[in-house]
Amino acid sequence: MTDGTLSPDTRYVRANDVVATGMDGEIVMMDVKKGSYFAINGSGPEIWERLAEPILLRDLIASLAEEFETGAQDEFEQHVTGFVRSLVTQGLVKPAD
């Protein structure tokens, strides 16, 4: 994953040092170690909730696709993978394996 590529066969989970709460349809988070604040909205809170327990990236995408009306599957997968990648880059989510 050093090149920024996420494997669909890797389980991801929230980082331990992140405190989060729901507020007006979005999730507000603080990385306790860094003192950084983040807010996510749209489909982000649903993805965040599913990352409470370790989940394979491919299973995360599949479960979201079942719940939401998705047009182009490839575009949807890229959107979810990109969002999870940004969470990993910010240290908010980590590989569980």
Rank of each mutant, 00 (worst) to 15 (best):
T81G: 08
Q90M: 08
R11Y: 07
P45M: 04
H79C: 04
I27W: 13
W48D: 02
I61M: 04
L57H: 01
E66I: 06
D74H: 07
A65P: 04
K33D: 11
K34E: 14
Y12M: 04
F68K: 13
I27D: 05
L51G: 02
G82P: 08
T2R: 14
T2S: 13
E46F: 10
I47K: 00
Y12L: 05
G71C: 09
G82F: 11
A20Y: 13
M30W: 04
S7W: 07
F76P: 03
Y12C: 09
E53G: 03
L64G: 01
K34D: 11
G82R: 12
E67Y: 09
D9C: 02
A96R: 00
Y37W: 09
G42S: 12
N16M: 05
S63L: 02
V18Q: 05
P8N: 10
F76I: 11
G22D: 12
V88Q: 02
Q90K: 11
I47L: 08
S43V: 14
N16I: 03
M30C: 07
E67L: 12
K33Y: 03
M30K: 07
D74N: 10
D97W: 03
D3A: 06
E67G: 05
L87M: 10
Y12A: 02
L60C: 13
H79G: 05
P54F: 05
V93F: 01
N41K: 14
I40G: 14
E46V: 10
E53P: 01
G35Q: 05
T2F: 10
R58W: 02
E53I: 05
H79F: 12
V93I: 03
R11I: 04
R50M: 06
A39S: 12
E69G: 06
G22T: 11
T10G: 08
G22S: 14
S43A: 10
E53F: 04
F38W: 15
T81F: 09
P45Y: 07
K33M: 06
L57Y: 01
E53T: 12
A15H: 15
R50A: 01
D9V: 02
D59T: 09
D3I: 04
P8C: 01
A39V: 09
Y37D: 02
Q90V: 01
M29Y: 10
L60F: 13
L6M: 10
G35R: 04
D3S: 06
F76G: 14
V84H: 00
Q90Y: 09
P95D: 15
P54S: 12
T81V: 12
I40V: 15
E46G: 06
Y12V: 03
T89G: 05
V19I: 14
G4Q: 09
V32K: 12
T10Y: 12
T21K: 11
D9E: 13
D31C: 13
D74W: 02
T21H: 13
V28T: 10
